[in-house]
């Protein structure tokens, strides 16, 4: 479904991605784990067209995304929940969700999806008319995920959904990610520092260090890998 092949990207003169190749098949949850500054966020930003690769190709269902505008990438079926959630603080919860469905014209289906996200996260329907900025961190993460789902994506990119949240909330969010994947068949590309949680929910994983992919395997294998254990799982 999504294939990055030998992608190189730069911030000024600093190389953020070095020959990154990642393949995501339809229906999968894959995770990209690694330390701070490894290039995980840049990887997602390049899929969304915010960061442009200097070389290599990003293919989404046989379409090369290298030159496609960000809004057209969303239209193609890719939604991105960025690091830090980036809720519009002065827009209400409802307006944030409306913007998630910005490109859609099928009003009836948008309503169904709205009911669906309220079912996933009932707290959001209570907070519906509150400004996004007044929500707690966990609620904002739920809103960010819901907002992305409102586009009815086929591929969901998630950047550190566990960041700064209480373990119980993280647990809840990861369960719902698994649920979204099973119920709707939404493919998920998850970037995480919380390697344990990420590998438990994902089918396969990639390990990134200094802008390069150093390891890839099934999650169950990675969970047992000595290198991963000592560097990312703290055991």
């Amino acid at each position: 479904m999504l294939e990055l092949s030998a992608v190189n990207a730069f911030y000024g003169r600093i190389q953020a991605l070095k020959d990154v190749s990642i393949r995501v098949s339809a229906g999968e949850i894959i995770t990209l784990i690694g330390a701070n500054g490894a290039g995980k966020t840049t990887t997602l930003m390049s899929v969304s067209g915010i960061v442009r690769p200097a070389s290599g190709a990003i293919m989404f269902e046989d379409r090369n995304l290298n030159e496609v505008e960000p809004d057209q990438i969303v239209a193609a079926g890719i939604s991105h929940v960025p690091e830090g959630r980036r809720i519009f603080p002065y827009l209400t919860v409802q307006e944030n969700l409306d913007l998630g469905a910005y490109l859609r014209r099928d009003r009836a289906a948008v309503r169904t999806d709205l009911d669906y996200v309220f079912e996933l996260f009932p707290i959001l329907s209570q907070r519906r008319h509150q400004p996004g900025g007044t929500l707690s961190g966990g609620e904002q993460q739920m809103l960010a995920i819901s907002r992305a789902l409102m586009a009815r994506p086929r591929l969901l990119l998630l950047d550190e959904p566990s960041l700064g949240l209480a373990p119980l909330i993280v647990q809840q969010i990861f369960e719902i990610l698994g649920q979204i994947n099973r119920e709707n068949g939404t493919t998920i590309f998850l970037v995480e520092q919380n390697a344990y949680m990420a590998l438990r929910v994902a089918h396969r994983g990639y390990v990134m260090e200094n802008g390069s992919i150093v390891l890839t395997d099934d999650s169950t294998v990675l969970l047992e890998n000595e290198q991963v254990k000592s560097a990312y799982l703290g055991v």
Binding site: F88, D98, L99
Partner: peptide
Amino acid sequence: SRVGKSMRAASQDKTMAMLLGVN
């Protein structure tokens, strides 16, 4: 309006607006 919402979104966070499909 839809346009109005996209204007407010862009004024609060342009990159996020782009990630939601706003031109």
